[in-house]
Amino acid sequence: MLKVTIDGHTIEVPEGTTILQAARMLGPEVAPPAMCYYSKLETSGGYCRTCIVKVTKGSEKDPRPMPKPVASCRTMVMDGMEVQNKTSPELLEARKGVVEFLLANHPLDCPVCDQAGECHLQDLSFEHGAESTRYEFERRTFEKIDIGPHVQLHMTRCILCYRCVKVADQLTPGRSHGVLNRGDASEISTYIEKSIDNEFSGNVIDVCPVGALTDKTFRFKNRVWFTKPMDAHRECDKCSGKVALWFRGADVLRVTGRKDAFGEVEEFICNTCRFEKKDAADWKIDGPRVIDHKSVISSNHYLANNQVPDFAFRVGEDYKAIEDKPVQPVPVQNQLNN
């Protein structure tokens, strides 16, 4: 076992653990944000640079600090390593820079984006971003394209995390999905207008941290924060059949994988479960789903108890916790009247 200290918290982890995994073992409050790393996808991570941390002590054997910030998702823990994440103002400044770069060409069209409310980029910019942008030039835009019958790609919002490319690579046979062009003109695309068409392609929607890949059966149906998540399952011969249903009233508006505290699905689900079973009668309901992924809009909505949101440290004393009282569900009748 290797001992690692992150922001003063010490944990012992097995060999081959990355700094990010170790931080996640300590809990979501300690873990650095990650936009491209996805523990269920091999070789993911390293691109977005939001999970950078400062290694102040390399290891017990070689205590020299690392000269540059490292991507915690791709750096292995060494015995005796000491890491600074939120405790280093310098690092937070560097991360703020990364967030600014990610947002430089992002349209910030949250009011009309289906991902708003559960968008990792929204959370990230709220926690680590600057108040306003210094970017004053035209942002890159792309035409929306359909990749397959159920998925729409809105490249303008993409932050090029490569997660969907890894899904296409690792979950689906016959890869037809990748990156075209170079630099800030890079573009996620399918092989010459070929659509993605296989049983697990819908998972690109779940792994997308922003609103670039959206579910065409759910687009513009509702804001996610008006929908109520329920754990449910069904007998499925293709996947585990364990999903989260998103209800508005008695209607199932959307089916997704069950996401954990880091916004990653517990298990990938098949397209039949995701796109075709939109009737509550198709499912056995397990109970309400607690959303413990910290999120701007969900912070007082889905949380089981009123934890102090993570971004409070930035606001310091000005932050006042909202009264410790669970939000009353709006009666179905009222919702329908809206």
Partner: peptide, 21 residues
């Protein structure tokens, strides 16, 4: 550098273009 950035990691992809502009 803007033209030649591969576009994999965000600081270089967005930063080189920004500096050029």
């Amino acid at each position: 550098y803007h033209h030649e950035s591969c576009g994999q990691c965000s600081p270089c992809r967005e930063g080189t273009g920004w500096m050029e502009k």
